[in-house]
Simulated assay, not measured.
Amino acid sequence: MFHTTVVHKLPPGDSPYVRAKHVQLVEKDPEAAIVLFWKAINAGDRIDSALKDMAVVMKQQDRAEEAIEAIKSFRDLCSKQAQESLDNVLIDLYKKCGRIEEQIELLKQKLRMIYHGEAFNGKRTKTARSHGRKFQVTITQETSRILGNLGWAYMQQENYLAAEVVYRKAQSIDPDANKACNLCLCLMKQQRFSEAKSFLDDILLNKLSGSDDLKSKNRADELLHELDTLQSAPLTSTLTQVKLEDAFVEGLDQLLNQWLPIRSKRLPIFEEISPFRDQLAC
């Protein structure tokens, strides 16, 4: 049997941050790493990276609430360039803790930043990193990803109509199988079975990005089975509450089939939201 040796690329030197990374990645002692990350922050040593890395390790140790407070307390010490990645960490932490309202507000804030051209430092793409590999993310992909996360958050509140509106918008921008499954579930919760079936068909017929992924296929099959069961059962007279009750989402709902080109410096993906800028500012 062959074993793969993982080689971690550690920063050079012997500063608190470097020692923290060594303890985290090589010695694999997360609690000791957290202590050293704190020392790095207090010493002003690579605060941007130290705060983000410490929050991630805290989340892994089921200390997400502490991580949230740490980011809120020390993010003012971080650079402007680090704020976006700290927001991404915060969103994951809110999700971990079940703090859905705060997650929703932060996701809306990120969408407003895209609308105003403030995301990606005003650029159309950014370089992201995952599992040591770098790749390019477009502003369109980022917008769809954030909308997808917003839709998931509304689903946790059982606000399936709001989730549907957001998922439809995300799919119109950058469609994929995962968001299609979630959209299908929103429609099933509203007993709109024929519409739900159409999205499942797109996945099962490999019409969407990620349709050939085994996980997406299995989930689509499970939803199809559940859909068949629901269709054969009598309709319930009482549906889960699906009121929008959200001016932001109501604005998106009106935008689904509209295109209002306006000359501006804003990114094209949000040109159509311009008439609703007052709602975005709520």
Rank of each mutant, 00 (worst) to 15 (best):
F135R: 13
N159I: 03
F120G: 11
R168S: 07
E158T: 09
A162E: 05
Q156I: 03
H131P: 00
R129L: 08
N121I: 15
R124W: 07
V89E: 08
C97I: 01
Q171R: 09
M155T: 13
E158S: 10
Q81N: 10
K95N: 01
F74R: 05
E102A: 07
T127Q: 10
R99I: 05
G117V: 04
D87E: 08
K108L: 04
Y160I: 03
L86N: 02
Q109L: 01
V166D: 05
F135P: 14
A177F: 07
H131F: 09
N182I: 00
K123R: 06
Q81F: 05
G148C: 09
K110W: 01
F120K: 10
Y154F: 13
L107M: 08
G98S: 10
V165M: 04
I104G: 01
Q156A: 05
V137H: 07
L111G: 08
Q141R: 09
G132R: 14
L150A: 00
Q109K: 04
T143N: 13
F120A: 09
Q109D: 02
Y167F: 15
N182E: 08
Y94V: 02
L106G: 03
L86D: 01
T143Q: 12
V89Q: 12
I104H: 00
Y94T: 00
V165I: 14
T140S: 14
T138H: 09
V89C: 09
V166W: 02
P175F: 10
I100W: 05
L106I: 12
C181I: 09
A163W: 08
V89L: 08
C78F: 01
L77K: 02
A153W: 03
N178W: 11
Y94I: 01
M155I: 06
Q103S: 03
C78I: 09
T138D: 09
L111H: 03
Q103R: 10
L107E: 02
I139C: 15
W152C: 06
L111F: 07
T143I: 05
K179M: 14
W152Q: 07
Q136G: 04
A177C: 12
Q109I: 01
R145H: 07
S144D: 02
K108E: 06
M113Y: 02
S130H: 15
N149S: 07
G122H: 08
D76S: 01
R99C: 11
Q157K: 15
T143G: 13
V137N: 12
N149R: 06
L106P: 03
E101H: 01
F135V: 13
R168Y: 07
E105G: 01
C97R: 09
C184I: 05
Q156N: 02
N182G: 00
L93P: 09
